[in-house]
Design a protein around this nucleic acid. Structure first.
Lengths: 331, 331
DNA sequence: CCCCAGCACTAATACGTATTAGCACCTTGA
DNA sequence: TCAAGGTGCTAATACGTATTAGTGCTGGGG
């Protein structure tokens, strides 16, 4: 009783032509095969009547494109925490994909646990799409290298420098944005500051550190980098050392930021964040990562890679500064 | 320079066997073909040496299912407003899809504008997946009917009664939940209330109205249904008429709710919402729609439909009451 | 009447893997 | 010596579409 989805062969039978003819007609006759208008219309009518939809898998096997973009993230795609940093990225991706007429395949990985492992098989599966976006703090280099080697179009969301720059990406310019935060502190008179960061060497962390350290050096400011947990005790020590401001990295969990905020509360230390924490009353000094725009641009770049005329395979987007209210002037 | 990825045929040549043998060996010999251990090892060794990786596209073409579920929504999939009501649904869908080893295809529609029209072609495209989830206040009946007719597995998120119940769904029991809200008002002594609803006859609206009206009738309470905009003037009139409480429908936009809240502010009218508006200080009396669970269950049901042993094709989930603080006692 | 030039299609094949019927060979027993 | 039964593998085909070389037809000119 179960009617199968219609295929080109069914259309062909209905229209009294061959499967090849159907393929040619539905494909818009790219190769310029001679075809009467009458036949063309008969085929189209038959296709319409049967509600034909091309099988993307077969399409893909037989040729090139199927107008689907993959999206592979190294954790649950829809995090429970709505405020999570990459929701805006997804918004941008979806927007631009729709604008360019591409569907989206979310590769969920097969394990079903939240923490996505770097699953070889799952990553390979991305080949079903015309190309794939990847997102995550780290790169499973071997798997990704295989894809890159075989010239499978892919774009990372976030700067990457693995594989000698052979990984195209759209990222945020954390170096410049972080430097700007430090410069703001300097302008306000701060001369002794601390930088608290995650103990994890993803580019998004090292870039921020670079921006901070370089800007501090350029201004001749004392800036120690701290990779350990911060509490009241640490803050008191800082005060004795003449520290007047703290800069904190922002991450998904915001653990470091929250710790610093709690420890600093009630003191007269200034603080700033290298990003923009979820709203919570006070506007914290820092900058806005253009996540939505990153999503959009990543899709744009990916489609360019697929169609073969990529503009700039390594894009860094500027971050808008957020003045905020958590940095005071130092006399 | 572009080395083709090795195929089973290459392995076969290297190991001195046929492609079929390679397929059998690499497939773990599910069908119990007789095979000497020696040959098996030769094949595996050859595969290893060539760094073979199965082509997922070909694999899927050759087998029947592709382990992809579609998700079609009648507006932008990732709404800009993060608090939007269906984000939690997506979370549930993704969770359960991952748990069941299914990938997700988000059909973006080809037009690229935010407001998704009921796009025939886009809806047909859902056939790409093994089955598809649909979500939206209304049903494009003709398109959906074609899918249902051809026994394409689909599940609506939200109750539907179109097509004589031939549309499987997972919805929320708004009738019961709405009745419970009215019963709570009655318990607190309210005898004259008003029900403000959208002027739109989606099932999620009519179900709520039914719950409210039936519960009011059962309790012998005066409850007029209001479909027009509410402002200060209206509220004042209500007060003169002895109204002590208002019940408001909750929707995506929350326009009605916000209007009522504003109009009621400062008066001593009680109010309750048929749902749970985004946090904004006070906890409003109402109920929690189990959206995430709906997403999960919808995926579950869809997979059952695909594999052929559906439990219950029409599921209504209970909503957890939220006591809240916006209903006062009436002496 | 034959030949050639278009015309309108189609036959054949490729893409890479999965599935299964069945072939060729060997051993054993009578 | 032949049948029966077992072993080890392969030929053939399916999956659905894209591509291209080529086939049969028609009509007009010589």
């Amino acid at each position: 009783m179960k009617r199968r989805a219609p295929r080109q062969a069914d259309i062909a039978a209905l229209a009294g032509v061959s499967q090849a003819t159907v393929s040619v007609v539905l494909g818009g006759n790219q190769s310029g095969v001679r075809m009467s208008e009458d036949t063309r219309l008969r085929v189209l009518a038959a296709a319409e009547r049967l509600g034909y939809v091309p099988d993307p898998v077969a399409t893909r096997l037989a040729s090139k494109r199927n107008h689907m973009l993959g999206l592979y993230t190294f954790k649950a795609t829809f995090p429970t925490d709505v405020a999570d940093s990459y929701y805006p990225i997804l918004v941008g991706v979806e927007e631009q994909a729709a604008a360019l007429g591409q569907d989206l395949i979310l590769f969920t990985g097969a394990d079903g646990r939240g923490e996505r492992t770097h699953d070889e098989a799952a990553i390979r599966r991305t080949r079903i799409a015309d190309g794939c976006l990847f997102f995550g703090r780290h790169v499973p280099v071997d798997s990704i290298e295989k894809l890159v080697e075989s010239e499978f179009p892919l774009v990372y969301i976030g700067r990457r420098d693995e594989l000698d720059g052979r990984i195209p990406f759209v990222g945020a310019d954390y170096v410049a944005a972080s430097a700007a935060v430090v410069e703001l502190l300097v302008d306000r008179g701060h001369r002794v500051i601390r930088y608290v960061r995650e103990d994890d060497d993803a580019p998004s962390s090292t870039d921020r550190e670079r921006g901070v350290v370089e800007a501090a050096a350029a201004a001749g400011v004392d800036c120690e980098v701290v990779r350990t947990a911060v509490d009241r005790g640490v803050v008191e020590r800082w005060s004795r050392d003449g520290v007047t401001a703290v800069v904190v990295e922002e991450t998904d969990t915001d653990a470091a930021y929250l710790a610093v905020r709690a420890a600093v509360d009630g003191t007269d230390l200034s603080y700033a964040v290298l990003g923009r924490p979820p709203e919570g009353g006070t506007e914290v000094t820092g900058f806005e990562v253009p996540r939505r725009e990153m999503g959009r641009r990543a899709v744009e770049l990916l489609v360019e890679l697929i169609t073969g005329d990529p503009e700039n395979q390594h894009q860094l987007l500027a971050c808008e500064p957020v003045p905020g209210t958590t940095v005071k002037d130092v006399r």
